[in-house]
Amino acid sequence: MPDEHEPEQELELTSPLVPLFVITNGRALPPDHQYEHTALVMAAEGASAMAGALSPEARQVLDLITEGFLSVAEVAGHTHLPVGIVRILLAQLEEDSLILVRRPVPRAERVDRELVSAVLEGLKNRFGA
């Protein structure tokens, strides 16, 4: 069989060697409000020393943010990993208390217009504007 092996056209495998689901080790995506694009992350003090058996990708993320805060989107940009994968890695790192996360200031929520007008209506009725 090795003799037949040469003339035939071999299939070229172009996909990345390590699939993304192995990089995340099958971990689920964290909920949407965690590790948003603009959330800032930084390695905790002495994290590199504490990090024992991290996957190369998690180690890369940790190394990136050793120097200071970096946004989740930037981490994804530098590691060339999809944001979702970076978020899963960050969730794992935070669980091992290897990183600090500074969540973005939540946007002030719009007041429900209908509720406000209902209150206004009530006030008007009560006090007769």
């Binding site: 999809p82 944001v83 994968i85 978020r87």
Partner: peptide, 19 residues
Amino acid sequence: VQRKYGNHAVLSDLLEVNH
């Protein structure tokens, strides 16, 4: 596709499909 929808909730399903 996984990279395209990298920040979408569908990513977790895509990971399973890929598996």
